[in-house]
Design a protein around this nucleic acid. Structure first.
Length: 419
RNA sequence: GGGCAGGUACCAAAGUGGCCAAAUGGGGCGGGCUGUAAACCCGCUGGGGUAACCCUUCGGAGGUUCGAAUCCUUCCCUGCCCA
């Protein structure tokens, strides 16, 4: 292979990798390193760190995972680093308050869940899963002092999160300041060529470059990926905000959640979560503006595609059918949560139960006040009839089951006790 | 170690003796409109009660008072300034 070919292939790889990124620091460095990798037949070491806080991987994570996959497609070595040690500290990124440190057990459990989930996207054969406690856990106090001596307080405090907290009078603990240094040291330990992260990680990733240089290594190339907005379209997708879609959620849930996003968010999701070409997506926008495409159909295609990614096409078809059935044709879902009604004998009068008791005792709602509130607001439906009387008694003596609907989305099949 | 300012519901933030289950905004939930859209409009958002009303809540624990989120004591937590 001559130099010209090498340059050509490197360029091709570069373009493939650049798609969807926010920033590559530095582009020329990446190009140069791709060339070197091809020339020496040595794959690049690509690192991405994950905090073991969320037991569920959601679509937000997949933006990054998909980029990791792209590196794998090109034969590079991808290291999925579970920050089990740094998890004990808590990443201050984007935080206005100190993160609560996790326990060892929680971290282990979450780490295991990660392992089980990431291979829905990454190639298990080509993925190295590592834990940073492997090296961080055995650093001596001396090592740590030595590490901290390589950076200044001012540089650590200049980052936005800290500056903001400092200004608004929120506490910053010393261990939080140390976080970026620890993450940077991961790059040293792994001799990373590239580190991937969300845009919120930019600061940490850059510290990695500086620290690697201090340790006599060539600084890693930093690639940042956009943060995916959550279902609300405003905040970033996160478990704690509850605006997320977990990749292990049932197909129907994923489908439904995607269908509920706004049209503008839909395009964002297309861009970051599917392999559709940007050109095609832009064309759709024009078609919608011209009234030639119903955005609903496009959204259905998005929902289908995402479900198919994680559950296969058959499940995606099923989810789509079920969705149409329940929400377009207003029919009952095929599967509903079944609840066997069981009330204390004293309250059971010939298998006739008060609606409030029914809701509370079957734990569908958490208090009697809430049950009343729901009924008064017209949010409770029994066998297709809106319940407007909070004293309604539900008869199970001749009819063995009832269909209960709460709001628009929650369905229950209530069954009489079998005894 | 000293001085000052704070800690209010899911979050932010008013309230500084009774009119406070606690303004307002956000979030959430329900209804309307719709494409389960989004946006928008209306309502609800501690618990018990059909209701009158009662019970629990304003960092923790005590106290003053007929009555405390509000006053006092003490403890815990946070920020700022000084050392």
């Amino acid at each position: 292979m001559d130099e010209k070919d090498i340059r050509l292939i490197a360029r091709e790889q570069f373009d493939y990798l650049k798609k969807g990124t926010v920033e590559i620091i530095q582009e020329e460095e990446l190009l140069a390193r791709l060339e070197k990798s091809i020339r020496e037949r040595k794959p690049l070491r690509v690192k991405a760190g994950f905090d073991p806080t969320a037991p569920d991987i959601h679509l937000g994570h997949t933006v990054l995972l998909r980029k990791m996959k792209h590196f794998q497609d090109l034969g590079h070595e991808v290291i999925f680093l579970i920050g089990d040690f740094t998890g004990l500290i808590g990443d201050p990124s984007g935080r206005s308050t100190t993160r609560k440190p996790m326990t060892r057990e929680e971290i282990n459990r979450n780490a295991e869940t990660y392992r089980q989930q990431i291979f829905k996207i990454l190639d298990p054969q080509k993925t190295v899963v590592d834990f940073n406690s492997r090296w961080l856990g055995s650093l001596t106090s001396f090592d740590i002092i030595n590490l901290t001596a390589k950076y200044t307080v001012a540089r650590l405090l200049e980052r936005d999160d800290f500056a903001l907290r400092l200004k608004s009078g929120h506490p910053i603990c010393v261990h939080e300041i140390l976080y970026p240094l620890m993450q940077a040291y991961d790059s040293v330990a792994l001799k990373a060529d590239v580190e991937l992260g969300g845009t919120d990680q930019k600061f940490n990733l850059l510290v990695g470059r500086d620290i690697q240089r201090e340790f006599g290594q060539q600084p890693q190339i930093v690639i940042t990926m956009p943060l995916l907005e959550g279902l609300d379209g405003i905040e970033k997708m996160s478990k704690s905000l509850g605006n997320y879609v977990g990749i292990t959620e049932p197909p129907r849930e994923i489908y439904g959640k995607i269908m509920s996003i706004s049209d503008s968010l839909m395009f964002r999701y297309y861009e970051l979560l599917t392999d559709f070409e940007l050109k095609e997506i832009e064309a759709w926008k024009r078609e919608i503006a011209a009234g030639r495409i119903n955005p609903r159909d496009l959204k259905a295609q998005l929902a289908w595609t995402i479900v198919a990614d994680f559950w296969g096409q058959e499940e995606a078809d099923k989810a789509a059918r079920e969705f149409d059935r329940v929400f377009r044709h207003k029919e009952l879902p095929q599967e509903m949560t079944e609840i066997v009604v069981a009330l204390p004998q004293a309250q059971a009068k010939a298998y006739s139960y008060n609606i409030i008791d029914l809701l509370v005792n079957s734990r569908i709602v958490s208090s009697r006040s809430e049950a009343k509130r729901l009924i008064r607001q017209g949010g409770v439906d029994l066998d297709g009839q809106r319940v407007d009387d909070i004293n309604l008694s539900v008869d199970f003596s001749w009819q063995k089951e009832h269909i209960l609907r709460l709001g628009k989305k929650r369905f229950f099949r209530l069954k009489a006790p079998t005894s």
